[in-house]
Simulated assay, not measured.
Amino acid sequence: MVIPVHDVNPVRRTPWVTYALIVANVVVFLATPGVTGSVTGGGSLAQLCHLEAFTQHYALVPRELIHGRLPSLVPTGATGVGVQGPGCVLGPPTYRKSPVLSVLTSMFLHGSWLHLLGNMLFLFIFGNNVEDRMGRVRFLLFYVVCGYVAGYGFALLDADSGQPLIGASGAIAGVLGAYLVLYPRARVWVLVPFLIFLPLRLPAWIVLGFWFLLQAFYSAGEGVSDAGTVAYTAHVFGFVAGMLLALPLRPGTPPPPEPRGLLFGRRARTGW
């Protein structure tokens, strides 16, 4: 997997919506109850129970979204001792959850620093140009729509699941799909792990096309990979939605500048 670092594609105006989305995700992450324990791995049972209750309240749950079946018992955030030892206490929900609204709230929840920073890195690199092309209001609406398409797509393929889905990656996948349509020839500096991290400058269609193929491969036949809890199917739905929504803007999009000079960190005679 390549790690994007920077794209050679300047913007005409400050991408305030992209910056605001990044700040909002970081603030929500830091404000999430019990998140410290989830990050360090050394959290107490009480912290983990608070985190589980918060996630159940605000995360997207497929069977709630598709079938409208809200659970009669949910984590309360309290701890107790049962026949199997200490654990989180379940009880009737003290709140009214809107499954449709949970698609939006789940876009701002993350399970770890790695999850958060990985998503924000992609949004920071590719979101500014998409926002610059669409305009701030349209970009914000586009971001939310892609997140909803990703969430509903994932839920439809695993409609009976009670596993919460969190993260901004479905919406950000839409941003990547739009970038691929609008700026396929833009150059992107990436780090490729090959004994060491090798810096390369590659066209966006290679970087983002490879990323999408990986997501499609991992999601083939499954909603969630067996190796973890990454919702690859949501990435695929979000990416395709972003591509389709960006297609009408492609004819009037100015091409990115053709970079000349630095290649693999050294001076080259000609640009790519």
Rank of each mutant, 00 (worst) to 15 (best):
E222N: 12
A150V: 01
S225F: 09
V149E: 10
A171C: 07
A216T: 08
F217L: 14
Q215E: 05
G170V: 08
I196E: 11
L165E: 14
L195W: 10
P203K: 00
L213W: 10
F154K: 04
F217P: 06
V224K: 08
F197P: 10
F212M: 04
S219A: 15
S225E: 14
F194A: 15
W211V: 03
P203D: 00
G170L: 08
Y179W: 12
D160T: 10
G209H: 08
P193Q: 05
Y218E: 13
D158W: 03
A173M: 06
L198H: 09
V192L: 15
L156F: 12
P203A: 02
D226Q: 11
A159R: 00
V149C: 09
F197C: 09
S161H: 00
P184A: 00
D160K: 02
P193M: 11
F154L: 13
V149M: 08
A186I: 01
R187G: 13
L176D: 03
F197M: 12
R201L: 12
G167H: 02
L202Y: 01
A168L: 05
L156E: 02
D160Y: 05
L176T: 07
V224C: 05
D158Y: 03
Q163L: 15
I172G: 07
Q215C: 11
P184S: 01
F154G: 15
V181A: 04
V188C: 11
L202M: 06
A186S: 09
F197K: 07
A168H: 10
L202A: 04
P164F: 01
A227E: 10
P164G: 04
S219L: 11
Y179K: 09
L182C: 10
A216Q: 07
G209N: 11
L195K: 14
F212Q: 04
R185D: 13
G223L: 08
A155H: 04
S225H: 12
A155M: 05
G153W: 01
P184C: 01
V207D: 04
L180N: 03
F217K: 07
G153P: 06
Q163I: 15
Y152G: 10
A155D: 06
A155Q: 02
S161W: 00
F210D: 05
A168V: 09
E222Y: 08
G174K: 02
G177C: 03
L191R: 01
S161K: 01
I166R: 04
S225M: 11
G170A: 09
L195I: 15
Q215N: 11
W211R: 03
Y183K: 03
V175F: 05
A178F: 05
A186K: 03
G167L: 05
A186H: 02
L176H: 05
L182W: 07
Y218M: 13
L198D: 06
L195F: 14
L157M: 14
R187M: 12
F217G: 09
S219C: 09
V181T: 02
G151Q: 00
L208S: 00
P203C: 00
L157K: 10
F154T: 08
D160R: 08
G153L: 08
V188R: 11
V181G: 05
P199E: 05
L180I: 03
G221L: 07
D226S: 14
I166L: 11
E222C: 12
V175I: 06
Q215A: 14
L165H: 07
G177Q: 07
A216C: 07
R185W: 06
L208Y: 00
